[in-house]
Write a protein that binds this DNA or RNA. Structure first.
Lengths: 145, 145
DNA sequence: CTTATTGCAAACGTTTTGCACGTTT
DNA sequence: AAACGTGCAAAACGTTTGCAATAAG
């Protein structure tokens, strides 16, 4: 796993290369995702950061803007819950898919080589240039059955 | 493929069994999905039906309510586009997944036995009771590359 | 005649935007 | 100093809901 310092450097370079600025708020959000290996809504990230950092002012709009920025840069990734919004996580790990429990909301990550390979094959078959793919298995987790 | 008459009968039975009523609006929406083998947003369905049937009054709320009803009954199915809403199609076909073009918005359907089997295996491995699963391959279609 | 369904408009929750002010470069 | 980023509040977006009027059983 990449160290936080390396990640920070990567982020700073990204900003510099795009004439964007390095701000306290952007750093806070990056750090938060790095330190918390779960999935969070923008709202959750906003509330937690606001509470933990009373000295630094932060608005929900900035959280949204920064998450979009991080996702575009490939540093964060999100899963969508339809009308109920999105949840974000650090997106530097190896690609993976999700099992989502409809009762407790728990998210289990998995990686499956067979599925990955098969997706490549399918894209090729349709002459489709794949840029991303997602798989969600929805149901009841062990606890909730 | 099921005939429209059969489908209509099925729908009427469904309604009767649940003490629900058969209305012009519900029939219009069912018929629309049957006759149009593509994916539509509730808004699109609403606009088209409104224009094509000036004699029958129809509201967007009814479209949403009916689509939910049809989806719950397994007659329609939807794909989610995150914040951008959902698109519906008749859901009587064999289960399938989607290739989605980010440029032209085109949706290609496919079915892959290997992926289906692998999903079952994964659910089993995590002691997960799967109720649904979706796979989206996002990228550029042949035309848009 | 009872009950479900409708359209409308208002409410909802999430996300985006315009703008004046602050910060980074 | 110039340019970008910020928080705020308002707007936008897709969707849902309360309600009185209407239609189906």
């Amino acid at each position: 796993m990449i160290s936080y310092d390396k990640l920070l450097e990567k982020f700073k370079n990204l900003l510099k290369n795009n004439t964007l600025k390095f701000t306290k708020q952007r750093e806070l959000i990056l750090k938060f995702l790095y330190e918390n290996d779960e999935h969070f809504t923008p709202e959750e990230i906003y509330m937690i950061l606001k509470k933990k950092n009373p000295d630094i002012n932060i608005g929900i709009a900035t959280v949204y803007r920064t998450l979009t920025l991080l996702e575009d840069a490939g540093i964060a990734s999100s899963i969508s819950f339809g009308t109920q919004g999105k949840k974000y996580e650090l997106g530097l790990k190896k690609h993976h898919d999700h099992l989502i429990c409809t009762t407790c909301g728990d998210i289990i990550e998995f990686f499956d080589e067979t599925i990955e390979m098969q997706q490549e094959k399918i894209a090729k078959k349709f002459n489709f240039k794949m840029t991303d793919h997602t798989m969600k298995i929805v149901g009841l987790c062990e606890k909730c059955q």
